[in-house]
Computed example of a mutant assay.
Amino acid sequence: MSVHLNHTIMPARDRDATAAFLVDLLGLEPAPEYGPFRVVELGNDVSIDVVQADGDLPSLHYAFLVSEDEFDQIWGRIKERGLTYWADPYHRREGQINTNDGGRGLYWSDPNGHNLEIITVPYGGGA
Rank of each mutant, 00 (worst) to 15 (best):
M1H: 14
M1W: 09
S2K: 13
V3D: 02
V3G: 02
V3F: 12
L5H: 13
N6S: 15
H7N: 13
T8W: 10
I9Q: 13
M10A: 03
P11Q: 14
R13D: 04
R13H: 13
D14C: 12
D14P: 10
D14M: 08
R15I: 05
R15M: 12
R15D: 11
D16M: 02
A17T: 00
A19D: 03
A20P: 01
A20Y: 06
F21P: 04
F21W: 15
L22R: 14
V23L: 10
V23F: 02
D24A: 13
D24C: 04
G27L: 03
L28V: 06
L28E: 01
E29I: 00
P30K: 08
A31L: 07
A31G: 06
A31M: 06
A31H: 11
E33M: 12
E33I: 09
Y34W: 13
Y34E: 15
G35M: 14
P36L: 05
P36K: 05
F37S: 04
F37D: 04
F37G: 02
F37H: 12
V39Q: 12
V40L: 14
E41C: 09
V46C: 03
V46R: 01
V46H: 01
S47W: 03
D49L: 02
V50H: 10
V51R: 12
V51F: 01
A53I: 02
S59V: 11
S59T: 14
H61I: 10
H61L: 10
Y62E: 01
A63T: 11
F64T: 09
L65T: 00
V66P: 02
S67K: 14
S67G: 13
S67W: 12
D69C: 05
E70F: 00
F71G: 02
F71S: 05
D72H: 14
D72W: 07
I74T: 01
I74S: 00
W75H: 14
R77E: 07
R77F: 04
I78S: 01
K79M: 07
E80W: 03
E80I: 00
E80R: 05
R81S: 05
G82Y: 12
G82L: 11
G82V: 08
L83D: 07
L83W: 05
T84H: 03
Y85L: 07
W86S: 14
A87G: 13
D88A: 00
D88I: 01
P89K: 12
E94H: 14
Q96I: 03
I97R: 10
I97G: 05
N98T: 14
N98R: 15
T99E: 15
D101M: 13
G102K: 09
G102Q: 11
G102T: 07
G103D: 05
G103A: 12
G103S: 11
R104C: 07
R104W: 06
G105H: 09
L106A: 12
Y107C: 05
S109F: 08
D110A: 04
P111L: 08
N112F: 15
N112S: 15
N112L: 11
G113W: 10
H114R: 06
E117N: 12
E117F: 00
I118F: 09
I118W: 02
I118N: 10
I118M: 03
I118L: 09
I119W: 02
T120M: 03
T120L: 03
T120D: 06
T120Y: 04
T120G: 09
P122T: 07
Y123A: 07
G124W: 11
G126S: 11
G126T: 02
A127N: 04
A127S: 10
A127C: 06
